[in-house]
Design a protein around this nucleic acid. Structure first.
Lengths: 237, 237
DNA sequence: GCATAGAGTTAGAGGTGACTAATGATTGAC
DNA sequence: GTCAATCATTAGTCACCTCTAACTCTATGC
């Protein structure tokens, strides 16, 4: 639902929508939203973002804070949520209906999200049974608000000897996602953190019936909840 | 398949692709391809098309004939076929998988066709089982060539007292398509042309078990084949 | 305290796509 | 044969998105 597109003093071009979405997601993760960070994520130059932020600010969608950081206004947030909703619903659709692997859905949804009409998005939502989360575990915003953007504990901070319930996988890099998929790491999976070297050394985990070892510490990739002592409740079928 | 996108001296922007597709379809129907006709179909002004045609001509995708008419070169035709393939596969997908009514699929596909990657299109094609025709009966081009663009007899020229096998419905106007759907007219359907007034007067047809009357003559909308005397072979279940 | 690195912005420019208004060319009507 | 209508084009603008190069500002290091 959330249909908010035809309004505002500025047209909602793909570049505008991409910028709003990027600010929304970064801010949701608690990361500082600077010009260069957004530029990096969108694969454009900083001046391009600088100009866009100025336009968005003039339109009342963005406000600048502190040292040139950007934040969405309430109005901007409404529009950004709509874009994020489109993006995540499409990711879910692509994975569930067309078997697109989860390391590809982001790029495809990125292109499609600007071309989907509200009516079509509604059909997709209905077809999927109004899903809560996309293939990476990210919440799909909807009218009522619903699930928030909270991120939980990062796997690289999970204590050894406990089970860890994976809720979200942030990384969008294809190689990283394929690597994680190979390890069996995905939202909904429980893993045992069996051992950890002191001082951030290698992390040993058990996923499913097989034991896998992570040779390097996982950084800012996998988020979730510590739920029980490792091996408890026979969770790993 | 038909992947021909990364090549050429000019970028394949949505405007370029739309123009190529429009020329391809109009020419396929045997209609003259003039600047204004293309402009009408794309809902832009004639100068916009004029400039685009000049660029396409310079890029070797279009050649001008007679009085400023446009025709695709062999190279342009290859690209246009690719766009048409994307468009028609998407229409088919939207109708079959998401139940989008046939009077809406064109507009949705129009937006999506520029955002679908070759890889995703391949998945869609596979998911649908490599369909031959889209919801309007238009052939979906593929590598081997396959079905051509021939249009058959127009319903308004079909003789009274014969059955008529509908193959294609050209019109893209939503109201017209809904009107036809209400009458039961769609590709694959057989209808009896029961009576016709002389001099282009009202056309009476029978579709399915019910008799429907067309109050006005159907113009250039429905194409197909005259197959048998009306009422023969109990075709209308 | 000053130099330098990093981040952000300004300046200048180019490509694409769209418009309106005016001009040229062809065709059809009378 | 001329006039009008239709069609295509040219001219002149404008908005959007992107870039590189140069400049400013801030913070960090020594």
């Amino acid at each position: 639902m959330i249909d908010v597109r035809p309004c505002c003093t500025m047209p909602h071009t793909p570049a505008v929508e991409d910028t709003l979405r990027t600010i929304f997601v970064r801010a949701g993760r608690g990361e500082p939203v600077g010009t260069s960070a957004v530029a990096d994520e969108l694969h454009v130059s900083p001046p391009t973002v600088s100009i866009m932020l100025k336009r968005l600010t003039a339109a009342g969608l963005v406000q600048r804070t502190d040292g040139h950081l950007a934040a969405l206004t309430e109005h901007g947030s409404t529009h950004a949520r709509d874009v994020v909703r489109r993006h995540r619903l499409l990711e879910t659709f692509l994975q569930r209906v067309l078997d697109v692997p989860w390391d590809e859905v982001h790029a495809e949804a990125d292109a499609l999200e600007h071309a989907v009409s509200p009516r079509l998005l509604d059909r997709i939502d209905r077809h999927l049974g109004h899903p809560d989360r996309d293939p990476h575990g990210d919440p799909i915003p909807r009218d009522g608000g619903g699930i928030g953007e909270e991120w939980g504990v990062r796997l690289d901070s999970a204590p050894a000897g406990r089970a860890f319930h994976i809720e979200r996988v942030y990384d969008r890099d294809s190689a990283a996602l394929r690597y994680l998929a190979d390890l069996g790491i995905a939202p909904g999976v429980r893993i045992d953190v069996t051992e950890r070297q002191p001082f951030g050394g290698p992390l040993w985990i058990r996923v499913g019936p097989d034991a896998h070892a992570l040779g390097e510490p996982l950084t800012h990739l996998v988020h979730g909840r510590v739920v029980a002592p490792a091996g408890a409740r026979g969770t790993l079928a």
